[in-house]
């Protein structure tokens, strides 16, 4: 096991991971669930957390890192915004303005695609089909599906999700 100075995952996270262990015959299957737990709490999975998760699961850190890097989903360098908005750009959404929606939202918030606003409130990411093509173009913002959007309604809906995320943070 690699020793490192900063333990970033908490006892609560470890307990949550361990509670899932009986579901699988092999602890390696806990890699994705564990990364999701860390990501939910820290909004990214820094290298230190990879080492911690590996220690908990009894795996070499390289194996956890290998899995993590396959899924572009997990940010590693720095946390994503309190709201993470996936803007669909696949065919059904693109036919109804999905690409333009992403461009317009990025311009309005002064970020590049995959970027996070300076105040850390919002990350805007292109996404492939969200499985909600009946509501194209659409955005998944945290757990909220924002439907049938145009740039104005999207901006307004994102503000609401941001307000809810900020309220949760305060409570």
């Amino acid at each position: 096991m690699i020793a490192h100075g900063r333990r970033v995952i908490t006892d609560e996270m470890v307990a949550e991971i361990e509670a899932l262990a009986p579901r699988y015959p092999d602890r390696r299957a806990l890699v994705l669930p564990a990364l999701h737990i860390v990501n939910r709490e820290l909004r990214h999975v820094p290298l230190d957390a990879v080492v911690d998760v590996a220690a908990v699961l009894g795996l070499p850190p390289a194996e956890v890192q290998d899995t993590l890097t396959f899924y572009q989903f997990f940010h590693q360098a720095k946390p994503h915004g309190k709201v993470r908005a996936f803007v669909c750009r696949s065919i059904s959404c693109a036919l109804r303005g999905g690409d333009e929606l992403l461009v317009e939202l990025c311009r309005k918030h002064g970020v590049e695609p995959y970027g996070t606003t300076e105040d850390g409130s919002l990350t805007l990411e292109p996404a492939e089909c969200l499985g909600a093509c009946d509501f194209a173009p659409c955005i998944l913002a945290n757990d909220d599906l924002l439907k049938n959007l145009d740039p104005d309604s999207a901006a307004a809906a994102l503000e609401e999700v941001k307000a809810r995320a900020a309220a949760r943070e305060d409570s």
Binding site: S92, C129, G131
Partner: peptide
Amino acid sequence: DESEPGTFNNR
């Protein structure tokens, strides 16, 4: 995993 663009019946 339903990710084929255009598909949402499983959802």
